[in-house]
Amino acid sequence: MSKRQHISAVVNGDPVDFLTDPGATLLDALRDDLGLTGSKEGCGSGDCGACSVILDGRLVCSCLVLAVEAEGRRVETIEGMADGSKLHPLQQKFLEHAALQCGFCTPGLLVAAKALLDVNPDPTESEARYWLAGNLCRCTGYDKVIRAVMDAAAELRQVRV
């Protein structure tokens, strides 16, 4: 057994420390060590996007990041998306548009959609679809997901104005 390593990182704005096996993924650390089970494991190979988090400003699959790589990095997960009890406009629009059924892919989709709107506040439908192609949803056929993202983008643009 390899020796566990001590890692210090910032998760959702808060400093965290944990011990991790060098072979463990960031997703393992978030779920098992930090109790942040909002990020889901659907495949473990970067093909489904259910574990999406933002690492130092970049959207990644946390199942494809080693936990030890997080040393000194900033991680944003679904648990940090709402402002206290106030939902992020994307979260609100997902609810209003019924953009979730089982809800399992939803945290990853929301994190990925937020990353999109952070860099592209006014995406076309096609841009949104391609950006989110790494987030598999088996329930919705993506229709209401895309509508919710476009609607949230429009609302966020209003807020900025």
Binding site: S52, L59, C61, L64
Partner: peptide
């Protein structure tokens, strides 16, 4: 190569 997420890495 891969998704937006994969492009992040």
């Amino acid at each position: 190569i891969g998704s937006t997420q994969v492009q992040g890495r």
